[in-house]
């Protein structure tokens, strides 16, 4: 009784300013803390996204506001052969590179997870392709694939594996293979380092217990390491798929979508139509066509990650 009487009077004597009381309320505080993020995301993600949608249903070009045309742009691009090629390319590019990046990344991560002299140095070196600005490293690759000065051709020739020059970026299939190689080279470090971090959370005792339980090395990988690494793997794959699907720099620098539009991806084709040609609305429609696919990928993977993590 006495205590509550005292606190009552203190409250009455010194009521805190209204502002402070609002911040004492966790719902208000949460809102206030979220405002910067909401503003940033709104300005740089939500607003451009909405403008993109609005743009895609008009006939805007550079210098011409245009009129509302409904889904005409989408109808047009779905009948466009180059668009279809770039859809096919994007899926191929994403699929093939992801498989290789996962495989090589996991292999590297397992190697780096061992104890050896110079471990820290090796780990740092592995990250190099990831650290170098993509445009710079891609230019270096462009020279390596150059039909005349190609160091690859020189090497293969002197090893006696080829007799003539290979026109890496001039042949549609080879050009696709080339950009896939560069993407894998650039993406493996991210997989390797992330998976290495995942591997390090797995107690070595589990592998020892499995070894005593009679599991051979690959059984230990399959029954212990892989299932425990799966949540990390899924998150890494999610990031990688999103980035690769919307990749731009490598193709833009290496081939510019050529030869003869054979290596266009969603992003490069959208850029070529929207900015290069000035057909803003059509370009917007092409980049929006990526959205449903990515949305689905994200939903499926997030659901899967949640299922794996609940276990």
């Amino acid at each position: 009784m006495a205590i509550s009487a005292v606190s009552d009077t203190t409250l009455r004597e010194a009521p805190p300013p209204r502002r402070h009381r609002l911040l004492e309320d966790e719902r208000w505080l949460a809102f206030v803390l979220l405002v910067p993020t909401i503003v940033l995301l709104g300005m740089f993600i939500a607003y451009p996204f909405m403008r993109g949608i609005l743009l895609s249903v008009t006939s805007s070009r550079v210098g011409m506001p245009g009129d509302f045309v409904g889904l005409a742009n989408f109808y047009k691009i779905f009948n466009d052969g180059i668009f279809r090629t770039s859809v096919y390319n994007t899926f191929l590019y994403t699929g093939v590179t992801t498989v290789f990046k996962l495989g090589l990344g996991l292999w590297l991560a397992m190697l780096l997870n061992r104890n050896f002299r110079g471990k820290a140095l090796a780990r740092a070196f592995i990250l190099l392709p990831f650290i170098i600005p993509t445009v710079l490293s891609t230019f270096a690759w462009k020279w390596m694939f150059d039909p005349t000065f190609s160091v690859l051709n020189w090497l293969l020739y002197h090893l006696g594996l080829i007799t003539g020059r290979i026109n890496w970026l001039g042949d549609p299939d080879l050009a696709m293979i080339s950009i896939i190689i560069v993407n894998i080279w650039r993406g493996v470090p991210f997989f390797a380092i992330s998976l290495l971090a995942g591997l390090q959370t797995i107690s070595p005792e589990l592998n020892e217990a499995a070894a005593i339980d009679g599991a051979k090395p690959w059984q230990r990988f399959w029954h212990i390491t892989w299932p425990l690494l799966l949540p990390v793997t899924m998150v890494v794959m999610l990031f990688s798929v999103i980035q690769t699907f919307a990749d731009f720099q490598i193709v833009y620098v290496m081939t510019g979508g050529g030869p003869a539009n054979a290596t266009h991806l969603f992003a490069t084709y959208a850029y070529q139509i929207g900015i290069g040609t000035g057909l803003l609305s059509e370009g917007a429609a092409i980049s929006l066509a990526m959205f449903p696919v990515l949305f689905l990928v994200v939903i499926v993977q997030l659901l899967y990650i949640r299922r794996v993590e609940v276990r």
Binding site: E205, A209, H223
Partner: peptide, 12 residues
């Protein structure tokens, strides 16, 4: 057969 300090049970 070995029993480990942290049990080393397979969490999955």
């Amino acid at each position: 057969a070995m029993v480990f300090q942290n049990y080393a049970l397979y969490p999955h």
